[in-house]
Computed example of a mutant assay.
Amino acid sequence: MLTPFALHVSDQDLTALTRRLRDTRAPAAFPAPGWAAGAEAETVARLVRHWGDGFDWRARETEINALPQFTADVADTRLHFVHLRGEGPHPLPIVLTHGWPSTFLELARLGDRLANPSRYGGDAADSYDVVIPSLPGFGFSAPSGVPTHDLWHTLMRDVLGYDRFAAHGGDLGAGVTSRLAAYHPSSLIGIHLLAAMTPPGEPVTDEERAHVAQVARWHAAEGAYEHQQQTRPLTLAHALSDSPAGLLAWIVEKYRAWSDSAYAFTDDDILTQASIYWFTNTIATSFQPYFSHRPFWQRIEVPTGFASFPADLSRPPRSWVARTYDLHRYTAMPRGGHFAAHEEPDLLAADLTAFFRPLR
């Protein structure tokens, strides 16, 4: 059964957060400039001040509640999701899956462009019924022991009544989308990805070898967060669940490092994402997909589209993706980073539309 969802943080929780922020103890000065050693102290201090005195959570809460949101019990898991009905005569149902440290909200700009293309100069015949769930243990969805791809399949088919549908995802969402196609191929008309599974065997072209080397360099420089969340997430979770400044620092560094532009996210965007994690106390459970991750590879025979954004941490060449997926479309984007749905929603919506149009 679907239950309409409206977000309301109590005045007591807002007051408690403000008190913690005003009592923040900043770290001692560190002998490294700017962002060289992690989240820049001046930036975090500025955001902490704004979060505690000036950030209008109630205004953001109103904006969030303007989205049509629901909860449903799926396999004994309470799932939260946005459901945007398409404007056209035959909208294509699609499920969009976010990653970490994102929330469902990061996909809202893309979702509106897909559901209402005529607002953005497109054709209503290309519209979608857009479903944007919160990953289990993220924000307003409960943690679950059921594989996420199975929850999504049940939500789309049995709860919402879509016999066949499309799917898109990046980061963790790309893994969920790939598994959805692997385990439920008859329900998928196609999938669109921003990241791809690693194929078995050695790289076979110079371009693939360069990609493997680039990924290794990235992990050496940027991958400490992933290793911590895979191996000792609870140790980290104690600190981030108790300190809003610590939670903010952990998140803002990723938004800065993985975006194509420092201006892709406003201060209020960052603080809204951090607030969702804080008020729901879900930073710990958001680490679960890393801790429970098991290597997975399977040849995907569902038609696949792939968009490669130049500032993303995952930019595999076309041949690399085609070794795993039935690749119908590969687009090298002119700009954009890891959070493409928010950074470049027009580019991503256009690519999704071009890929899925012949599959409708």
Rank of each mutant, 00 (worst) to 15 (best):
residue 254 K to D: 01
residue 180 L to S: 09
residue 265 F to D: 01
residue 277 Y to W: 09
residue 188 L to A: 09
residue 196 A to H: 09
residue 231 T to C: 08
residue 191 I to H: 03
residue 229 Q to F: 12
residue 171 D to T: 09
residue 201 G to N: 07
residue 246 G to S: 08
residue 246 G to V: 11
residue 243 S to W: 05
residue 212 V to N: 01
residue 228 Q to E: 09
residue 190 G to D: 05
residue 274 A to Q: 07
residue 200 P to K: 02
residue 224 A to C: 03
residue 241 S to P: 02
residue 185 P to T: 01
residue 228 Q to D: 09
residue 264 A to M: 01
residue 173 G to T: 11
residue 242 D to M: 10
residue 195 A to P: 04
residue 195 A to K: 05
residue 192 H to A: 10
residue 237 A to T: 04
residue 175 G to H: 08
residue 171 D to N: 06
residue 203 P to N: 08
residue 277 Y to H: 13
residue 203 P to V: 09
residue 275 S to W: 07
residue 174 A to G: 15
residue 239 A to T: 15
residue 258 W to V: 06
residue 212 V to Y: 00
residue 180 L to D: 10
residue 194 L to G: 10
residue 267 D to F: 15
residue 250 W to N: 13
residue 220 A to E: 12
residue 273 Q to I: 14
residue 208 E to S: 14
residue 254 K to V: 09
residue 176 V to H: 02
residue 187 S to W: 15
residue 186 S to K: 15
residue 177 T to E: 12
residue 195 A to V: 11
residue 270 I to R: 14
residue 233 P to A: 06
residue 270 I to Y: 02
residue 205 T to Y: 03
residue 175 G to K: 02
residue 262 A to C: 01
residue 203 P to Q: 01
residue 258 W to D: 02
residue 173 G to S: 08
residue 222 E to S: 04
residue 203 P to E: 10
residue 180 L to M: 06
residue 250 W to Q: 13
residue 198 T to C: 00
residue 203 P to F: 06
residue 211 H to E: 12
residue 234 L to V: 01
residue 184 H to P: 02
residue 217 R to M: 13
residue 271 L to K: 10
residue 259 S to C: 12
residue 238 H to F: 14
residue 237 A to K: 14
residue 248 L to E: 03
residue 215 V to L: 13
residue 266 T to N: 12
residue 240 L to S: 11
residue 257 A to Q: 14
residue 189 I to Y: 03
residue 252 V to D: 05
residue 215 V to P: 00
residue 212 V to D: 10
residue 253 E to V: 02
residue 278 W to G: 08
residue 270 I to Q: 05
residue 190 G to H: 05
residue 241 S to E: 13
residue 176 V to G: 04
residue 269 D to K: 07
residue 214 Q to D: 14
residue 201 G to M: 08
residue 221 A to E: 09
residue 234 L to M: 06
residue 271 L to V: 06
residue 238 H to G: 08
residue 262 A to K: 02
residue 234 L to N: 13
residue 181 A to H: 12
residue 247 L to W: 04
residue 173 G to Y: 14
residue 223 G to Y: 03
residue 278 W to S: 11
residue 197 M to A: 14
residue 270 I to A: 04
residue 224 A to S: 13
residue 251 I to A: 01
residue 202 E to W: 00
residue 233 P to Y: 09
residue 181 A to L: 11
residue 198 T to P: 00
residue 218 W to C: 04
residue 211 H to G: 00
residue 258 W to K: 03
residue 267 D to G: 14
residue 231 T to Q: 12
residue 249 A to E: 05
residue 185 P to M: 06
residue 243 S to T: 08
residue 227 H to S: 10
residue 252 V to W: 00
residue 267 D to V: 04
residue 178 S to A: 14
residue 188 L to P: 04
residue 247 L to H: 07
residue 231 T to S: 11
residue 257 A to P: 00
residue 227 H to C: 06
residue 256 R to S: 04
residue 183 Y to L: 11
residue 194 L to F: 00
residue 202 E to H: 03
residue 206 D to K: 09
residue 243 S to A: 00
residue 169 G to Y: 06
residue 273 Q to R: 10
residue 274 A to R: 05
residue 208 E to A: 09
residue 265 F to N: 01
residue 227 H to E: 04
residue 196 A to Y: 06
residue 271 L to W: 07
residue 198 T to A: 14
residue 227 H to T: 10
residue 212 V to H: 05
residue 232 R to Y: 11
residue 204 V to C: 06
residue 193 L to V: 05
residue 253 E to P: 01
residue 218 W to K: 01
residue 177 T to C: 06
residue 243 S to I: 05
residue 237 A to W: 09
residue 179 R to G: 12
residue 221 A to T: 11
residue 212 V to E: 07
